[in-house]
Design a protein around this nucleic acid. Structure first.
Length: 845
RNA sequence: GCCCGGGUGGUGGAACUGGUAUACACGCAUGACUUAAAAUCAUGUGCCACACGGCAUGCGGGUUCGAUUCCCGCCCCGGGCACCA
């Protein structure tokens, strides 16, 4: 074996060998006579019989998942391997512990960048995708990641999107997919409609441009019907807290009541169906006595006008201008509130008094009922509005200061005043009493609202799954019969987006014009395509059974593999992909497409990785010229150094800057490992590891194992470095074969190539990656002696070596006997002595 | 504004459940090897001080024998949401 470590020679060799041996293939879930023989290795939880697997399922399988990448033209970013390597390490350890591991990979390949790239270079998106996937595959394979490539999937493959379309039809059949004319987020530069999630803050997530509102007929999916379960089921899964919090906030559940306000009889110029009574939503029904005016959104007021309300000219002008303002405009220029009095009055059901109705754009059309009761004394926005337009302010909850002249709204809870039958009640009781009064008097109902909106599911672009619906003049929206799926994307010459808001597919007559499957009359295909979140909403199910052409995945395979045991991905997908796919899964589970045994949630555990930043802690970008290309790193240092460095770089869930010097340290570490274990010779039996090193060895087995399980990779690498340093210090010739093998096994998940090479050098015929994960001896993790710290008045004054089993009495005696300690006691008598076993003695005088 | 994170040497970072702050690595310095350099190895490296010792985990308080860790009040950085009634 060479004296020097040459990553470039050994890495491709083993990658080829592993692929040939199929060591990363998940074993068959339910072997039958027809199935090919299981892979030839013995370990790895190979299925012996269907029964054995079924009974052992709970602790025998491990499904590790990373977010499958979008194969962009830029190739792999150094951020991708951080996540992939981390879960690679976890799954490798699981495999060595005897689990049947599924760690698959695929491609989320529909999407705008590819389409734009194809348009620019006048090639087909299909070809660009094929090329990008080939490049990504080469890069991933060069990193020695243990993916089961036999299960590779691709969302743009008709055999895959056939099922995406099938699932859409299930949504349609269960009335969860519907078409609605709504104001949508329209990005004028991308020429595409966006979901709310993609247009946060009025900014297009793709191009960063300003989003406009446009009215358009869109396919929508009623994710809001699942809002409550998406919220409450978070209690049943193990997600990072910040992920749960973000989802909870995004779903935004509010409990309160709807209250109906009748229009004052003198104002029946208002069309009755729309506006009488006016229904509002509030979380503070207890403040109803303080509601001094109503405010409706311009959008709602517009529907009144459309229905025939003859609004004063100033009012219609305000509505017109408010509706023109973009979302962003409305959000950022919020310093000064605008609004207009409608000239109409309603009656406060609690006080019986007339209150004016205002129209203002600080009330949102899409939340609650689009109208509010304004309680200026107890709501900041209403307060600002009332001040500006000199509207009455009536305090109904007493504040601690209880000033007669309020300078700000008092929004906390308190005790009711000026509220008739609510007077003297604390807020929670007042709420309850008011709600029951409203119900009794038929003025209102308890109600819950969510910030979550239905999912805008249409995209007016070419490179996506066609929505499998046919529009017939007579029958309406007719689903494409299942036997005709997939509705394949036609090959087109031009797929440039149009400014008309129609998909490029609309221009292909031969494709669009079809017969209605129901009545046979002339009809038209839906030309919108699905968003790129569609294919990724269920890909983890397809991995369980990727070749199946009868169904998206056989129930018994889903039963075996689901749920995903560990799912890692970026924080940026928390309110998008992660929420969508939970919803999608729940729906399929509800309709019985997924077996009940799989559980109501797709992911048992969800973790997130931090970003890899450029030097100085700024984001990597082409324009800054600080982009690190994984290919260059692999060429210079090899895959193992790259992997170990990315794990050592810092806490996995935090951002970390790439340090071109830092990687040198990891390189030195692996070179040290090579020097220790290459040219390995069996030590003479007279040599033994020093006791301290033996202890360290067992501590390291414990530490590395626990750290991998808890995703603390940086400290696991550190522990391995400490052990390597200790072994180097005691001398390579004193290392026993057992010790060498344990060390290599612990390092194997991190650095699979170098450890395989050294392992085989020890004479092994089988791969290290299916060898057995080492166990530590609990008796050996405690050292024979420890350093007892002695504190006087909280300050460390001495350290002495004492035996591990030392008694409290003896420890205190030795502590007091210390010369240094005596010096600090200066003859005074100790008042208090505390002994912390195995740590310290604290003396106070 | 609200909700999450985070703030520790020159740098990335470590520290169990309140118990030796600064592990591991980078960088730097000195030395060995070399004609020289690189690589490697060895030693040192929080700050102040010759030393005894003192001071240090964003800032100010508190609890405790003992606080990076717990409590109260602030400051700064990153992320999410944002007129959500």
């Amino acid at each position: 074996m060479s004296n020097e470590y040459h990553a470039r020679e050994i890495e491709p060799k083993w990658q080829k060998q592993w692929e040939q041996d199929g060591i990363y293939h998940a074993a068959r879930e339910l072997p039958t006579a027809k199935n090919e023989a299981p892979p030839r290795h013995k370990r790895g939880g190979i299925a012996e019989s269907a029964e054995a697997i079924r009974s052992a399922k709970a602790d025998k399988k491990f499904y590790g998942l990373i977010e499958f990448p979008y194969p962009s033209g830029e190739g792999l970013h150094v951020g991708h391997p951080r996540s992939y390597t981390a879960i690679d390490i976890v799954t490798r350890k699981q495999r060595m512990q005897g689990k049947n591991v599924l760690y698959p990979m695929g491609w989320d390949a529909f999407g705008l960048p590819t389409e734009n790239f194809a348009i620019k270079h006048k090639i087909k998106p299909q070809d660009a995708t094929r090329k990008n996937i080939a490049n990504f595959t080469r890069q991933l394979k060069s990193l020695g990641l243990g993916f089961d490539w036999s299960r590779e999937i691709n969302t743009t493959d008709p055999a895959y999107y056939k099922w995406t379309q099938w699932m859409f039809l299930q949504f349609f059949k269960h009335d969860l997919a519907y078409k609605a004319k709504t104001l949508i987020n329209w990005c004028p530069s991308c020429k595409i409609g966006l979901a709310n999630e993609e247009a946060q803050g009025g900014i297009c997530e793709r191009c960063g441009g300003t989003v406009e509102k446009r009215e358009k007929e869109q396919w929508m999916i009623a994710i809001t019907k699942y809002a409550d379960r998406l919220l409450s089921d978070l209690d049943t899964v193990d997600y990072l807290d910040k992920i749960k919090t973000q989802q909870i906030n995004w779903i935004g559940k509010s409990q309160g009541a709807t209250i109906d306000f009748k229009i004052k009889p003198t104002h029946y110029s208002l069309p009755t169906t729309h506006s009488n009574p006016i229904r509002v939503f509030t979380t503070r029904p207890d403040t109803l006595f303080g509601a001094t005016f109503l405010v409706v959104s311009p959008e709602l007021a517009k529907t009144w006008m459309d229905a025939g309300w003859k609004a004063p000219r100033a009012v219609s002008a305000y509505i017109k201008s408010a509706l023109k303002r973009t979302e962003e405009d409305r959000a950022t220029t919020d310093k000064e509130k605008t609004g207009v009095a409608s000239g109409i009055e309603a009656v406060n059901p609690a006080t019986g008094k007339p209150i004016p109705i205002w129209i203002a754009d600080y009330v949102l059309a899409g939340y609650g009922t689009g109208a509010i009761m304004a309680v200026p004394a107890h709501d900041e926005r209403d307060f600002a509005f009332a001040k500006k337009f000199k509207l009455p302010i009536v305090q109904v909850v007493s504040s601690p200061e209880n000033s007669s002249k309020m300078t700000a709204a008092f929004t906390s809870e308190g005790v009711n005043i000026n509220s008739d039958f609510l007077d003297g009640l604390a807020t929670p009781e007042a709420k309850e009493k008011m709600i029951s009064w409203l119900q009794k008097e038929k003025h209102g109902e308890p109600a819950v609202t969510y910030k979550l909106r239905d999912w805008v599911f249409s995209r007016q672009r070419y490179w996506g799954e066609p929505i499998p619906i046919i529009n017939c003049a007579k029958c309406g929206y007719v689903p494409v019969p299942e036997k005709d799926l997939p509705v394949k994307l036609p090959e087109v010459k031009a797929y440039e987006p149009t400014d008309t808001g129609e998909s490029p597919l609309a221009a292909i007559k031969s494709w669009v014009e079809v017969k209605c499957p129901k009545c046979g009359a002339k009809a038209k295909r839906e030309t919108d395509t699905m968003p790129n979140w569609a294919g990724s909403s269920w890909y983890f199910l397809r991995y369980c059974d990727p070749q199946n052409d009868q169904t998206f995945a056989a129930p018994e395979k889903l039963k075996y593999w689901m749920p995903v045991d560990l799912y890692n991905g970026g924080m940026e997908h928390t309110t998008l992909h992660l929420l969508y796919s939970r919803f999608w899964y729940k729906f399929l589970w509800d309709i019985g497409a997924i077996p009940k045994e799989c559980g109501a949630e797709p992911y048992r555990m969800r973790r997130s990785h931090g970003l890899i930043l450029g030097g100085g802690g700024v984001k990597m970008s082409k324009s800054k010229g600080n982009v690190i290309n994984p290919d260059d790193v692999v060429a210079e240092y090899g895959a193992d150094v790259f992997r170990v460095y990315e794990m050592f770089i810092g806490p996995f869930d935090q951002d970390a800057p790439w340090d071109t010097h830092g990687i040198e340290g990891v390189k030195r570490f692996l070179e040290k490992v090579w020097r220790l274990f290459s040219n390995f010779h069996l030590p003479s039996s007279t040599f033994h590891l020093p006791n301290a090193t033996e202890t360290l060895l067992h501590q390291t087995i414990k530490k590395v194992g626990e750290d991998i399980d808890s995703l603390n990779f940086n400290t696991a690498v550190s522990a391995l470095m400490i052990l390597a340093n200790a072994l180097a210090e005691s001398g390579a010739e004193k290392i026993s074969r057992d010790t060498a093998e344990i060390f290599l096994k612990l390092l194997a998940p991190f650095a699979p190539h170098i450890t395989e090479e050294l392992w085989r050098g020890l004479g092994h015929k089988e791969t290290i990656h299916l060898s057995e994960w080492p166990k530590f001896n609990p008796k050996k993790i405690t050292a024979a002696t420890f350093e007892l710290v002695i504190q006087v008045n909280g300050k460390v004054r001495d350290r002495i070596s004492v035996p591990s089993g030392i008694s409290a009495k003896e420890a205190e005696r030795q502590a007091l006997a210390s010369e240094k300690v005596q010096g600090f006691l200066a003859g005074k008598k100790p008042q208090k002595i505390i002994y912390v076993p195995g740590r310290l003695v604290s003396i106070s005088v």
